[in-house]
């Protein structure tokens, strides 16, 4: 195990301590993604089968879909993949501040995607598409919901990785309490994401309801003050906590962790491309 101490340059594509040279974590992630392919394969197959066997009088998807919104969220998710790739690259170069920026960017875009999905789901339910309203409802929500869970888990993972970049070295000042502090940090970042999303959704709702005018603003301020304040507080807390007490225990060595996470994130993106094609675009052919 200890025979190969990497000294100066780290070869990111070859690990001398494993038989094949592929790091264990990377191999594990690839195998997991192969398995995950089958998960989504089964769900997408279910959707397509019920699309081919519609019950008479079942709901027509295009009456619900807003292809513009979904195209936008698809684009956002694709861009998040770009930022994720930049984060991996930065980590391999040991540029921790850049890693943080790119991770925050990825989280931001991931959150936008999730917000779009929350908006979409609420909107569809209002239009009458529910889990039990038709087979379309059953397959649509289960499929996109499972994907949404994957994105949400990905965002949580990104947040944890972001917080991880602040970890002090073992034995350094504050290292003993860091595990608990980091949990708080994760909580604050997650709270910021949730409240910001909430605020934006509230604002969108007010604008859609009243048009873009003063009425909308007063209506919004009437209903949306609490999430707005909470969002502001948690954002400030995020900023305050984003400081390291000492030199952090994070760098090139963690590139493999970021890279594995990146693999997962890109995979979730690719799956969305498939879902976007099969569930949405197919209906417009």
């Amino acid at each position: 195990m200890s025979t190969h101490a990497a000294s100066a340059a780290i070869d990111h594509h070859h690990d001398h301590t494993t038989t094949t040279g592929i790091p264990n974590k990377k191999l594990f992630m690839w195998a997991f993604l192969a398995s995950d392919c089958m998960f989504f394969g089964a769900l997408i197959a279910t959707h397509l089968i019920y699309r081919l066997h519609p019950v008479p009088g079942s709901q027509e998807p295009t009456t619900f879909f807003s292809i513009e919104l979904t195209s936008f969220s698809t684009f956002i998710l694709l861009m998040s993949s770009l930022l994720m790739a930049l984060a991996v690259n930065a980590c391999q170069k040991g540029n921790v501040p850049a890693v943080r920026k790119m991770l925050i960017g990825t989280i931001f875009f991931g959150a936008i995607f999730l917000a779009c999905q929350v908006y979409e789901f609420t909107h569809f339910v209002h239009l009458g598409l529910t889990l039990s309203s038709s087979q379309l409802g059953s397959t649509f929500y289960t499929l996109t919901g499972t994907h949404g869970c994957h994105v949400a888990i990905g965002v949580l993972w990104l947040v944890m990785m972001y917080v991880r970049t602040f970890k002090p070295h073992d034995g350094a000042k504050g290292s003993k309490l860091w595990p608990y502090y980091s949990l708080l940090h994760v909580g604050v970042v997650v709270a910021a994401i949730v409240f910001c999303t909430w605020t934006v959704l509230d604002a969108t709702h007010a604008i859609l309801e009243h048009g873009f005018n003063g009425e909308a603003i007063s209506a919004y301020l009437h209903h949306g003050m609490i999430p707005l304040v909470a969002a502001a507080v948690s954002l400030i807390a995020c900023r305050l906590m984003a400081r390291s007490a000492s030199a952090e225990d994070f760098g090139e060595a963690n590139a493999i962790d970021v890279e594995s996470m990146g693999l997962y994130w890109h995979f979730v993106d690719v799956v969305w491309i498939v879902i976007f094609t099969v569930v949405y675009l197919l209906e417009y052919l």
Binding site: M1, S2, H4, A5, A6, S7, I10, D15, H16, T17, T18, P23, N24, K25, D249, G251, E252, A253, N254, A255, I256, D257
Partner: peptide, 13 residues
């Protein structure tokens, strides 16, 4: 640096 670099590859931090 050395120790962490080695560790992350092998899964032993």
């Amino acid at each position: 640096m050395e120790a962490t670099a080695k560790a992350s590859f092998t899964g032993h931090d």
